[in-house]
Design a protein around this nucleic acid. Structure first.
Ligand SMILES: Nc1nc2c(ncn2[C@H]2C[C@H](O)[C@@H](COP(=O)(O)OP(=O)(O)OP(=O)(O)O)O2)c(=O)[nH]1
Ligand SMILES: [Mg+2]
Ligand SMILES: [Mg+2]
Ligand SMILES: [Zn+2]
Length: 504
DNA sequence: GCCGTTTTCGGCCCGACTGTTTTCAGTCG
């Protein structure tokens, strides 16, 4: 699939055009198209072949032509042209916080800055600070930006959602203790439950101009203060070196502000444009008609002004959710309280963190009806895979615990699919189990589709674990024909796992 | 560059923080 390659080129074209001072709306149009391609789940080449590119909102005549050109020739002439008159390393410098396209262009035109070393030189010799509109403080901020930039390694840094949860939870508790704070909630990509987050966004109710932001920037977890104003502040947090943005609004704006701060940006722009068309204005302070405040206390109120139901944050990506909401056709999402059990739990017998008893207790507290303990099988040595005797002992322990607990504890295993497609235990061992998950953990490149298909043919196999094999910010998925696997799984009644662990 | 039951031209979301300004530009959310 060439979606990502094309997205990268369009983004680079946008950066270069912006550097050269092109119309900002044109620049946005390229960026928007790049994002659409990056989020596109189908192969753009198929769309191109069928002549349907312009059916995609945000892709018009010009960009459709460029996509076709790339698919046919492997390049985009316009991109080549613009890049050829742009110094090779200069666009990279746009990643430096507080250095944007205008300043960069100025430094390039007036001082001949072409790369990071040039930039550092004009900072040190004072020439950057003497340019019109520049001054010592701006230069100091760019200098700090360079330090941050050199701290990121290579690509834009993002954090797995599960890794930031403890930081967010404890921070929210800290902020709740500030005087004058009524409510504190996480927003941004964290609330939208994205796989990874680029920062942490937190909203609170309080009086603007109070001490809240100042206190936030003085917390012990603060490594560096990036901004500190009346209604918002930004810091870098010590343990993860992640940026945290705090926004403060009054109570009557809480819903509008939560809507704004939850995003996504594209969702906000779509909603605000819709409002504007109907003669309203939406900001983080509320919905307004002229000067008049119409709504803003809750998110429901804000959406309701436009005849929309409340839209779950997980859907707010401008991927058609606003159109569906308008038609009253939003999909119903599975809620936590609908989850009846968990089929994939590792215990201390293999690489889990807890004993089966501890797990059962916790699961009962969570209101689950059943759990399946599915430890790793014997070949997976690095994850404490169980030999047949240990498995037997573990099963006996589960029998004993089932007498003690109300919750049903199932005997399961996550059995490795070996290189030849056979399973890691003989059938008589599998027959002792209530649940058999089959999974590939070794040989990701070798005949994955065939091996999974072979494993599914065994009538003792109930579930295929993590069928894509991807690790979020770790590893591309297996080279696997998922459609083939889905088709056969349906025929055989084998379940395909949706693994919700935060790096899967 | 994209887009359109008020438009095929002329708009394109809206606001905070900072530094450099004497009324605003740049950067960011
Ligand atoms: N209306 C509007 N809202 C924005 C804009 N940029 C950001 N926001 C809102 C929506 C975002 O979800 C929210 C937080 O901004 P972030 O830059 O932290 O983005 P977000 O958390 O969505 O993604 P991230 O994982 O941090 O990259 O602020 C913008 O240009 N316009
Ligand atoms: Mg964010
Ligand atoms: Mg943010
Ligand atoms: Zn596994």
């Amino acid at each position: 699939m060439k979606n990502l390659e094309i997205a990268r080129l369009l983004d680079e074209l946008a950066d270069a055009l912006e550097f050269h001072g092109e119309n900002p709306f044109k620049v946005s149009a390229y960026r928007r198209a790049a994002k659409i391609l990056r989020d596109f789940t189908e192969d753009i080449e198929v769309y191109a072949k069928e002549g349907r590119l312009q059916e995609i909102p945000g892709i018009g005549e010009g960009i459709a032509k460029k996509i076709k050109e790339y698919l046919e020739t492997g390049k985009i002439t316009k991109h080549k042209e613009v890049i050829s008159k742009t110094p090779r390393e200069i666009l990279e410098l746009l990643k430096i916080p507080s250095l944007g396209p205008k300043t960069l262009k100025l430094a390039h035109d007036k001082l001949g800055v072409k790369n990071l070393d040039d930039l550092k030189r004009v900072i040190e010799d004072g020439s950057l600070a003497r340019l019109p509109g520049m001054g010592p403080k701006k230069v100091e901020n760019i200098k700090k930006g360079i330090e941050l930039y050199e701290g990121f390694t290579g690509e834009e840094k993002r954090w797995q959602l599960g890794l930031v949860i403890p930081v967010v939870t404890s921070l929210v508790e800290e902020i709740k203790k500030f005087p004058g704070v009524k409510k504190v909630v996480p927003a941004g990509s964290y609330r939208r439950m994205k796989e990874t987050v680029g920062d942490i966004d937190i909203l609170c109710i309080g009086e603007p101009g109070g001490e809240i932001i100042k206190k936030f920037t003085e917390l012990p977890v603060v490594e560096r203060v990036l901004a500190c104003g009346e209604t918002k502040g930004s810091i870098i947090e010590k343990s993860l070196k992640i940026q945290i943005d705090l926004r403060v609004v009054p109570e009557r704006s809480f819903g509008a502000a939560l809507q704004y701060f939850t995003g996504s940006k594209a969702h906000n722009i779509k909603l605000r444009t819709l409002a504007k068309g109907k003669g309203y204005k939406i900001s983080e302070y509320g919905v307004f008609k002229g000067e008049k405040y119409i709504a803003g206390e809750t998110e429901e109120d804000v959406y309701a002004v436009f005849g929309l139901p409340w839209i779950p944050p997980e859907l707010r990506e401008d991927r058609g959710e606003i159109e569906l909401a308008l038609e009253g056709k939003l999909p119903r999402l599975v809620e936590y309280d609908e989850i009846k059990g968990d089929f994939h739990i590792h215990s201390k017998y293999s690489d889990g963190a807890n004993t089966i008893e501890e797990i059962a207790k916790k699961a009962e507290e969570m209101g689950l009806e059943y759990i399946a303990i599915c430890d790793h099988s014997r070949s997976l040595k690095y994850a404490g895979g169980l030999d047949i005797d240990t498995l037997k002992r573990r099963n006996e322990e589960i029998d004993r615990l089932n007498e003690k607990f109300k919750i049903k504890i199932l005997k399961g295993m996550e059995v490795d699919i070996l290189q030849d497609g056979s399973l890691d235990y003989p059938d008589p061992v599998l027959e002792e189990l209530d649940v058999v998950i089959a999974a590939i953990h070794m040989g990701f490149k070798k005949n994955v589709t065939e091996r999974i298909l072979a494993a599914m043919e065994n009538p003792l196999v109930d579930i295929i674990a993590h069928p894509t094999g991807r690790l979020i910010s770790g590893r591309e998925g297996y080279d696997v024909d998922l459609e083939k696997i889905m088709e056969r799984a349906r025929e055989l009644g084998v379940a395909l796992e949706i693994n919700a662990y935060f790096d899967r």
